[in-house]
Amino acid sequence: MKYLLQRIAFYLFTAWAALTLNFVIPRMIPGDPVKSMISRFQGQMDPDAIESLYVLFGIDKQAGIWDQYVDYWGQLFRGDLGLSFTSFPSPVSEVIGTSVWWTVLLVGITTALSFAIGTGLGVLAGWRRGSWIDGLLPATTFLSSVPYFWLGLVAIALLAGPGSFFPSSGGYEPGLVPAFDQYFIPSAIQHSLLPAFTILISSVSGWILSMRNMMVTVAAEDYITVAHAKGLPERRVALSYAARNALLPNVSGFALSLGFIVGGTLLVEIVFSYPGLGYLLFRAVGAKDYPLMQGIFLVITISVLLANLLADVVYMLLDPRTRKEG
Protein backbone atom coordinates (compact mmCIF):
# COMPACT_ATOMS: atom_id res chain seq x y z
CA MET A 1 0.00 0.00 0.00
CA LYS A 2 2.78 2.35 0.95
CA TYR A 3 4.51 1.42 -2.26
CA LEU A 4 1.43 2.26 -4.29
CA LEU A 5 1.09 5.64 -2.59
CA GLN A 6 4.70 6.34 -3.46
CA ARG A 7 4.01 5.50 -7.07
CA ILE A 8 0.93 7.70 -7.15
CA ALA A 9 2.93 10.57 -5.71
CA PHE A 10 5.55 10.01 -8.37
CA TYR A 11 2.98 10.04 -11.17
CA LEU A 12 1.36 13.19 -9.82
CA PHE A 13 4.75 14.83 -9.84
CA THR A 14 5.37 13.67 -13.41
CA ALA A 15 1.97 14.97 -14.48
CA TRP A 16 2.72 18.29 -12.90
CA ALA A 17 6.08 18.48 -14.66
CA ALA A 18 4.57 17.57 -18.03
CA LEU A 19 1.80 20.12 -17.72
CA THR A 20 4.22 22.78 -16.61
CA LEU A 21 6.31 22.02 -19.66
CA ASN A 22 3.17 22.39 -21.71
CA PHE A 23 2.87 25.83 -20.17
CA VAL A 24 6.47 26.84 -20.73
CA ILE A 25 7.08 25.67 -24.29
CA PRO A 26 4.59 27.95 -26.10
CA ARG A 27 6.07 30.85 -24.19
CA MET A 28 9.42 30.14 -25.74
CA ILE A 29 8.05 30.31 -29.25
CA PRO A 30 9.45 33.55 -30.59
CA GLY A 31 7.08 36.26 -31.75
CA ASP A 32 3.37 36.25 -31.21
CA PRO A 33 1.91 33.02 -32.62
CA VAL A 34 -1.53 33.95 -31.41
CA LYS A 35 -1.68 37.20 -33.28
CA SER A 36 -0.78 35.64 -36.59
CA MET A 37 -3.38 32.97 -36.06
CA ILE A 38 -6.05 35.36 -34.96
CA SER A 39 -5.49 37.31 -38.10
CA ARG A 40 -6.67 34.28 -40.04
CA PHE A 41 -9.97 34.37 -38.22
CA GLN A 42 -10.37 38.08 -38.54
CA GLY A 43 -13.56 39.20 -36.95
CA GLN A 44 -14.72 35.69 -36.09
CA MET A 45 -13.29 35.45 -32.60
CA ASP A 46 -14.92 37.08 -29.67
CA PRO A 47 -12.70 38.93 -27.21
CA ASP A 48 -13.19 36.25 -24.55
CA ALA A 49 -11.75 33.57 -26.81
CA ILE A 50 -8.80 35.77 -27.69
CA GLU A 51 -8.22 36.49 -24.02
CA SER A 52 -8.24 32.78 -23.20
CA LEU A 53 -5.78 32.10 -25.99
CA TYR A 54 -3.43 34.73 -24.67
CA VAL A 55 -3.55 33.14 -21.26
CA LEU A 56 -2.91 29.73 -22.71
CA PHE A 57 0.00 30.91 -24.77
CA GLY A 58 1.36 33.31 -22.27
CA ILE A 59 1.28 36.28 -24.52
CA ASP A 60 -0.73 37.92 -21.83
CA LYS A 61 2.19 40.24 -21.26
CA GLN A 62 0.33 42.39 -18.80
CA ALA A 63 0.20 39.62 -16.22
CA GLY A 64 3.32 38.38 -14.45
CA ILE A 65 4.56 34.87 -15.21
CA TRP A 66 3.27 33.59 -11.89
CA ASP A 67 -0.24 34.93 -12.47
CA GLN A 68 -0.19 33.39 -15.90
CA TYR A 69 0.75 30.06 -14.39
CA VAL A 70 -2.06 30.21 -11.88
CA ASP A 71 -4.52 31.13 -14.62
CA TYR A 72 -3.28 28.25 -16.73
CA TRP A 73 -3.97 25.70 -13.98
CA GLY A 74 -7.33 27.29 -13.33
CA GLN A 75 -8.25 26.80 -16.96
CA LEU A 76 -7.06 23.20 -16.93
CA PHE A 77 -9.13 22.33 -13.91
CA ARG A 78 -12.19 23.81 -15.53
CA GLY A 79 -11.48 21.55 -18.52
CA ASP A 80 -10.99 24.67 -20.62
CA LEU A 81 -8.27 23.93 -23.13
CA GLY A 82 -9.01 26.91 -25.27
CA LEU A 83 -10.69 27.08 -28.65
CA SER A 84 -9.65 25.09 -31.65
CA PHE A 85 -8.67 27.11 -34.72
CA THR A 86 -9.50 24.44 -37.23
CA SER A 87 -12.92 23.65 -35.80
CA PHE A 88 -13.56 27.20 -34.77
CA PRO A 89 -15.39 28.05 -32.58
CA SER A 90 -15.60 24.65 -30.89
CA PRO A 91 -13.65 24.32 -27.66
CA VAL A 92 -10.66 21.98 -27.82
CA SER A 93 -12.10 19.74 -25.14
CA GLU A 94 -15.15 19.12 -27.28
CA VAL A 95 -13.14 18.38 -30.43
CA ILE A 96 -10.98 15.91 -28.52
CA GLY A 97 -14.01 14.45 -26.81
CA THR A 98 -15.60 13.40 -30.09
CA SER A 99 -12.54 11.85 -31.71
CA VAL A 100 -11.07 10.20 -28.64
CA TRP A 101 -13.84 7.58 -28.68
CA TRP A 102 -12.98 6.47 -32.17
CA THR A 103 -9.44 5.81 -31.09
CA VAL A 104 -10.29 4.25 -27.77
CA LEU A 105 -12.75 1.85 -29.34
CA LEU A 106 -10.71 0.92 -32.39
CA VAL A 107 -7.28 0.75 -30.82
CA GLY A 108 -8.45 -0.28 -27.38
CA ILE A 109 -10.36 -3.28 -28.61
CA THR A 110 -7.66 -4.34 -31.06
CA THR A 111 -4.92 -3.92 -28.44
CA ALA A 112 -6.81 -6.07 -25.95
CA LEU A 113 -7.65 -8.62 -28.62
CA SER A 114 -4.10 -8.69 -29.87
CA PHE A 115 -2.79 -9.22 -26.34
CA ALA A 116 -5.26 -12.02 -25.66
CA ILE A 117 -4.62 -13.83 -28.94
CA GLY A 118 -0.88 -13.28 -28.86
CA THR A 119 -0.55 -14.45 -25.28
CA GLY A 120 -2.64 -17.53 -25.95
CA LEU A 121 -0.64 -18.51 -29.01
CA GLY A 122 2.60 -17.66 -27.22
CA VAL A 123 1.70 -19.98 -24.35
CA LEU A 124 1.00 -22.79 -26.79
CA ALA A 125 4.13 -22.14 -28.83
CA GLY A 126 6.34 -21.96 -25.76
CA TRP A 127 4.84 -25.02 -24.13
CA ARG A 128 4.81 -27.24 -27.19
CA ARG A 129 8.00 -26.24 -28.85
CA GLY A 130 8.22 -27.65 -32.35
CA SER A 131 4.45 -27.65 -32.90
CA TRP A 132 2.77 -26.00 -35.88
CA ILE A 133 2.81 -22.63 -34.12
CA ASP A 134 6.59 -22.56 -34.28
CA GLY A 135 6.16 -22.74 -38.03
CA LEU A 136 4.34 -19.41 -37.87
CA LEU A 137 7.14 -17.69 -36.01
CA PRO A 138 9.21 -16.53 -39.00
CA ALA A 139 6.08 -15.00 -40.54
CA THR A 140 5.11 -13.28 -37.30
CA THR A 141 8.63 -12.01 -36.80
CA PHE A 142 8.47 -10.51 -40.28
CA LEU A 143 5.08 -8.92 -39.62
CA SER A 144 6.19 -7.46 -36.31
CA SER A 145 9.08 -5.73 -38.02
CA VAL A 146 6.80 -4.15 -40.62
CA PRO A 147 5.50 -0.73 -39.59
CA TYR A 148 1.71 -0.48 -39.08
CA PHE A 149 1.18 2.15 -41.69
CA TRP A 150 2.95 0.24 -44.41
CA LEU A 151 0.78 -2.77 -43.74
CA GLY A 152 -2.17 -0.39 -43.84
CA LEU A 153 -1.13 0.93 -47.25
CA VAL A 154 -0.75 -2.61 -48.56
CA ALA A 155 -4.15 -3.53 -47.16
CA ILE A 156 -5.77 -0.55 -48.85
CA ALA A 157 -4.05 -1.27 -52.15
CA LEU A 158 -5.03 -4.93 -52.14
CA LEU A 159 -8.43 -4.98 -50.50
CA ALA A 160 -10.04 -1.58 -50.64
CA GLY A 161 -10.58 -0.91 -54.31
CA PRO A 162 -13.75 0.65 -55.74
CA GLY A 163 -16.70 -1.66 -55.19
CA SER A 164 -14.90 -3.54 -52.43
CA PHE A 165 -16.58 -4.40 -49.17
CA PHE A 166 -13.82 -2.61 -47.28
CA PRO A 167 -13.96 1.18 -47.35
CA SER A 168 -10.52 2.71 -47.69
CA SER A 169 -11.04 5.73 -45.48
CA GLY A 170 -13.17 7.35 -42.84
CA GLY A 171 -14.89 6.02 -39.78
CA TYR A 172 -18.41 5.69 -41.22
CA GLU A 173 -20.41 6.25 -44.39
CA PRO A 174 -20.40 9.98 -45.20
CA GLY A 175 -23.86 11.35 -44.70
CA LEU A 176 -24.73 9.19 -41.72
CA VAL A 177 -25.28 10.90 -38.42
CA PRO A 178 -23.27 9.36 -35.55
CA ALA A 179 -25.85 7.65 -33.35
CA PHE A 180 -26.40 4.27 -31.83
CA ASP A 181 -28.76 3.03 -34.50
CA GLN A 182 -28.92 0.25 -37.06
CA TYR A 183 -27.48 2.46 -39.84
CA PHE A 184 -24.54 3.94 -38.12
CA ILE A 185 -23.19 1.04 -36.04
CA PRO A 186 -22.76 -1.48 -38.91
CA SER A 187 -21.16 1.21 -41.03
CA ALA A 188 -18.72 2.11 -38.26
CA ILE A 189 -17.81 -1.54 -37.78
CA GLN A 190 -17.33 -2.03 -41.50
CA HIS A 191 -15.01 0.97 -41.64
CA SER A 192 -13.01 -0.23 -38.64
CA LEU A 193 -12.28 -3.71 -40.00
CA LEU A 194 -9.24 -2.91 -42.15
CA PRO A 195 -7.49 -0.63 -39.66
CA ALA A 196 -8.29 -3.10 -36.90
CA PHE A 197 -6.78 -6.01 -38.80
CA THR A 198 -3.75 -3.94 -39.67
CA ILE A 199 -3.09 -3.14 -36.03
CA LEU A 200 -3.93 -6.67 -34.95
CA ILE A 201 -1.64 -8.38 -37.43
CA SER A 202 1.34 -6.19 -36.80
CA SER A 203 1.04 -6.13 -33.01
CA VAL A 204 -0.04 -9.69 -32.24
CA SER A 205 3.30 -11.15 -33.25
CA GLY A 206 5.12 -9.12 -30.62
CA TRP A 207 2.95 -10.68 -27.93
CA ILE A 208 3.38 -14.16 -29.37
CA LEU A 209 7.16 -13.84 -29.41
CA SER A 210 7.57 -12.39 -25.95
CA MET A 211 5.10 -14.81 -24.37
CA ARG A 212 6.71 -17.76 -26.12
CA ASN A 213 10.16 -16.74 -24.92
CA MET A 214 8.96 -16.21 -21.38
CA MET A 215 7.28 -19.62 -21.43
CA VAL A 216 10.52 -21.22 -22.58
CA THR A 217 12.44 -19.44 -19.81
CA VAL A 218 9.92 -20.34 -17.14
CA ALA A 219 9.66 -23.96 -18.33
CA ALA A 220 13.25 -24.44 -17.17
CA GLU A 221 12.45 -23.28 -13.63
CA ASP A 222 12.68 -25.77 -10.80
CA TYR A 223 9.06 -25.33 -9.79
CA ILE A 224 7.94 -26.50 -13.23
CA THR A 225 9.97 -29.70 -12.85
CA VAL A 226 8.41 -30.10 -9.42
CA ALA A 227 4.95 -29.62 -10.91
CA HIS A 228 5.71 -32.41 -13.41
CA ALA A 229 7.14 -34.58 -10.66
CA LYS A 230 3.95 -34.10 -8.67
CA GLY A 231 2.04 -35.74 -11.49
CA LEU A 232 -0.25 -32.74 -11.94
CA PRO A 233 -2.38 -32.68 -15.08
CA GLU A 234 -0.53 -31.19 -18.05
CA ARG A 235 -3.01 -28.32 -18.32
CA ARG A 236 -2.48 -27.28 -14.74
CA VAL A 237 1.30 -27.31 -15.12
CA ALA A 238 1.10 -25.32 -18.34
CA LEU A 239 -1.40 -22.72 -17.15
CA SER A 240 -1.26 -22.41 -13.40
CA TYR A 241 2.48 -22.91 -13.04
CA ALA A 242 4.17 -21.90 -16.29
CA ALA A 243 1.85 -19.41 -17.99
CA ARG A 244 0.87 -17.73 -14.74
CA ASN A 245 4.50 -16.85 -14.11
CA ALA A 246 5.39 -16.15 -17.72
CA LEU A 247 2.53 -13.68 -17.90
CA LEU A 248 3.93 -11.29 -15.29
CA PRO A 249 6.26 -9.21 -17.46
CA ASN A 250 3.77 -9.21 -20.32
CA VAL A 251 0.94 -7.88 -18.23
CA SER A 252 2.80 -4.74 -17.38
CA GLY A 253 3.78 -4.48 -21.05
CA PHE A 254 0.11 -4.67 -21.89
CA ALA A 255 -0.87 -2.01 -19.38
CA LEU A 256 1.80 0.25 -20.85
CA SER A 257 0.60 -0.37 -24.36
CA LEU A 258 -2.84 0.80 -23.26
CA GLY A 259 -1.21 4.12 -22.54
CA PHE A 260 -0.03 4.36 -26.09
CA ILE A 261 -3.47 3.67 -27.52
CA VAL A 262 -4.15 7.35 -27.71
CA GLY A 263 -0.98 8.43 -29.41
CA GLY A 264 0.53 5.25 -30.68
CA THR A 265 -1.40 4.52 -33.81
CA LEU A 266 -1.22 7.93 -35.36
CA LEU A 267 0.03 6.56 -38.66
CA VAL A 268 -2.69 3.93 -39.01
CA GLU A 269 -5.31 6.58 -38.47
CA ILE A 270 -3.65 8.82 -41.01
CA VAL A 271 -3.44 6.06 -43.60
CA PHE A 272 -7.10 5.19 -43.16
CA SER A 273 -8.20 8.81 -42.53
CA TYR A 274 -9.80 7.40 -39.40
CA PRO A 275 -11.50 10.11 -37.34
CA GLY A 276 -9.55 9.31 -34.16
CA LEU A 277 -7.18 11.28 -32.02
CA GLY A 278 -4.10 10.43 -34.06
CA TYR A 279 -5.64 11.77 -37.22
CA LEU A 280 -6.83 14.80 -35.30
CA LEU A 281 -3.31 15.48 -34.12
CA PHE A 282 -2.07 15.11 -37.67
CA ARG A 283 -4.54 17.73 -38.88
CA ALA A 284 -3.81 19.97 -35.91
CA VAL A 285 -0.12 19.96 -36.73
CA GLY A 286 -0.85 20.64 -40.37
CA ALA A 287 -3.04 23.59 -39.52
CA LYS A 288 -0.76 24.92 -36.76
CA ASP A 289 -3.72 24.55 -34.40
CA TYR A 290 -1.69 25.04 -31.21
CA PRO A 291 -4.52 24.82 -28.66
CA LEU A 292 -5.64 21.55 -30.16
CA MET A 293 -2.11 20.13 -30.22
CA GLN A 294 -1.60 21.12 -26.62
CA GLY A 295 -4.86 19.50 -25.65
CA ILE A 296 -3.98 16.27 -27.41
CA PHE A 297 -0.55 16.14 -25.83
CA LEU A 298 -2.21 16.63 -22.50
CA VAL A 299 -4.52 13.69 -23.11
CA ILE A 300 -1.61 11.53 -24.26
CA THR A 301 0.48 12.43 -21.22
CA ILE A 302 -2.29 11.66 -18.81
CA SER A 303 -3.20 8.37 -20.46
CA VAL A 304 0.42 7.21 -20.41
CA LEU A 305 0.67 8.04 -16.72
CA LEU A 306 -2.61 6.32 -15.94
CA ALA A 307 -1.43 3.25 -17.84
CA ASN A 308 1.74 3.18 -15.79
CA LEU A 309 -0.29 3.34 -12.63
CA LEU A 310 -2.48 0.55 -13.95
CA ALA A 311 0.61 -1.54 -14.70
CA ASP A 312 1.79 -1.09 -11.12
CA VAL A 313 -1.56 -2.08 -9.67
CA VAL A 314 -1.95 -5.11 -11.91
CA TYR A 315 1.56 -6.26 -11.17
CA MET A 316 0.89 -6.00 -7.47
CA LEU A 317 -2.25 -8.05 -7.83
CA LEU A 318 -0.53 -10.77 -9.84
CA ASP A 319 2.82 -11.05 -8.15
CA PRO A 320 2.70 -11.62 -4.40
CA ARG A 321 6.38 -10.74 -4.14
CA THR A 322 5.68 -7.09 -4.92
CA ARG A 323 2.97 -6.87 -2.30
CA LYS A 324 4.44 -5.39 0.82
CA GLU A 325 2.90 -6.22 4.11
CA GLY A 326 1.60 -3.60 6.49
Binding site: E221, D222, Y223, A227, A229, R244, N245, D319, P320
Partner: peptide, 14 residues
Protein backbone atom coordinates in the same frame (compact mmCIF):
# COMPACT_ATOMS: atom_id res chain seq x y z
CA UNK B 1 11.40 -36.27 -5.17
CA UNK B 2 12.92 -33.30 -3.37
CA UNK B 3 15.12 -31.46 -5.80
CA UNK B 4 18.58 -30.06 -5.54
CA UNK B 5 17.32 -26.51 -6.04
CA UNK B 6 14.61 -26.82 -3.44
CA UNK B 7 14.93 -23.08 -2.86
CA UNK B 8 13.20 -22.51 -6.17
CA UNK B 9 10.97 -25.55 -6.02
CA UNK B 10 7.92 -23.59 -4.95
CA UNK B 11 5.85 -21.63 -7.42
CA UNK B 12 6.29 -17.98 -6.37
CA UNK B 13 2.77 -16.88 -7.28
CA UNK B 14 0.79 -19.45 -5.32
Amino acid sequence: IVFQGAMNSLNPVH
